[in-house]
Computed example of a mutant assay.
Amino acid sequence: MPPTNESLIRRIHNELLDQSDEELELELLEDVRNLEELFDNSAEVDEGKLERRRYFSDLFYLQGELVKLQDWVVKSGHKLVILFEGRDAAGKGGVIKRITQRLNPRVCRVAALPAPNDRESTQWYFQRYVSHLPAGGEIVLFDRSWYNRAGVERVMGFCSDEQYEEFFRSVPEFERMLVRSGIQLIKYWFSISDEEQHLRFLSRIHDPLKQWKLSPMDLESRRRWEAYTKAKEVMLARTHIPEAPWWIVRADDKKRARLNCIRHLLSQVPYAEVEHPSVSLPQRQRSKDYTRNQIPPEMLVPEVY
């Protein structure tokens, strides 16, 4: 049964509140007062606040484990690639943001490639992805990947039938080659329902800060929901290999999806805590003849706030 206007408005409102929570989430650790308020067990709180408290508590714990994983990757020279695929508005960007939020960008980086240009379209299909693969001690997260050919390119007619079939012949061998070379490859598909994608698109339309996320291609993908479903089913059936299996994340609830994905990711990597030497701050050297130059007033940014 399709949702009523009243229930749809309520769900869009809740979606906008959740997006506000996302922004709060990025700042919470910087503000001790907010953390104290959030985790104040003496205060009377409603179920919604308890749910937020549990979410933030679990997220901060998992992010701490990600830092340990990062340290182990650097020390061991491990090479890790994680693919994030799914429909538009499925929440891929949200989980990528939470994974990278506390990590060193020199160790963990995101590859989000645009559509191929004229030159790239004549290259070996996987060529432009290869340059983003990790060296030892690095983690690369692909926000969409070479599976574009099995999804958007197939549905929108951007590749021929021959190119499509060649992709399925090549991709298992390509991924096995990566694994043989020492790269650990983890593939996630974020799965959302028809109704949930409809809601998220509506919330983006009504949120001026997120309207940029809706491209003409996104809107067309909404119209071709069934075609994308068929393409996804073929893709999963033909590329689910033992060396690099697919993992499906149920993503109608974004916060649960983030936690479940991060927890599963941690379970897939044999990391261990790395001991670090204690750090002490050295005394600053001071010279009697040192005088700090004054900054010219015209160079200063106006202190409006």
Rank of each mutant, 00 (worst) to 15 (best):
W246I: 03
G48P: 05
S160V: 12
G182K: 15
D40G: 00
W247P: 03
C159I: 01
P296V: 03
V179N: 09
N148Y: 03
T4V: 00
V152N: 05
S20Y: 10
R98L: 02
L133V: 02
E15M: 15
F142L: 02
N34Y: 12
S215V: 04
E120Y: 00
I139V: 15
I192L: 14
W225M: 02
R292C: 09
D21F: 12
N260D: 15
V81R: 02
F56P: 03
D161G: 07
R54V: 01
E23N: 06
Q163R: 13
E25C: 10
R54N: 08
R263N: 14
V67S: 08
H264K: 03
K232F: 11
S20E: 15
L209T: 14
L209G: 12
E47L: 15
H132D: 13
E36M: 10
E243M: 00
S145Y: 12
R109L: 13
A231G: 13
E23W: 10
N104T: 14
E220V: 11
R224W: 09
F142T: 00
L26A: 07
H206G: 09
P245C: 07
G94K: 01
R11K: 12
T4D: 00
F126E: 06
L66H: 05
S57P: 03
L83T: 04
V152P: 09
L103R: 10
E138D: 07
M217D: 08
G86F: 07
V155M: 00
L16T: 10
L202Y: 11
A257G: 10
Y61Q: 11
Y228L: 07
K187V: 09
E303D: 12
Q184N: 13
Y188T: 08
S280Q: 15
L28D: 00
Y129S: 01
L69E: 01
S193D: 11
K97C: 03
L8P: 01
D207N: 15
D31M: 04
D161E: 14
L50G: 08
N260S: 12
V274T: 11
R33V: 04
L69A: 07
K288W: 09
S131W: 06
E23M: 13
R292W: 10
V32T: 12
I205Y: 04
S131M: 01
T4S: 12
L141V: 02
I248M: 12
F56A: 00
C159S: 06
R258N: 02
I241W: 01
I96G: 00
N104H: 14
Y61K: 13
M177C: 14
R238F: 05
R102S: 11
I139E: 03
E196M: 14
A272S: 15
G77P: 11
V269R: 09
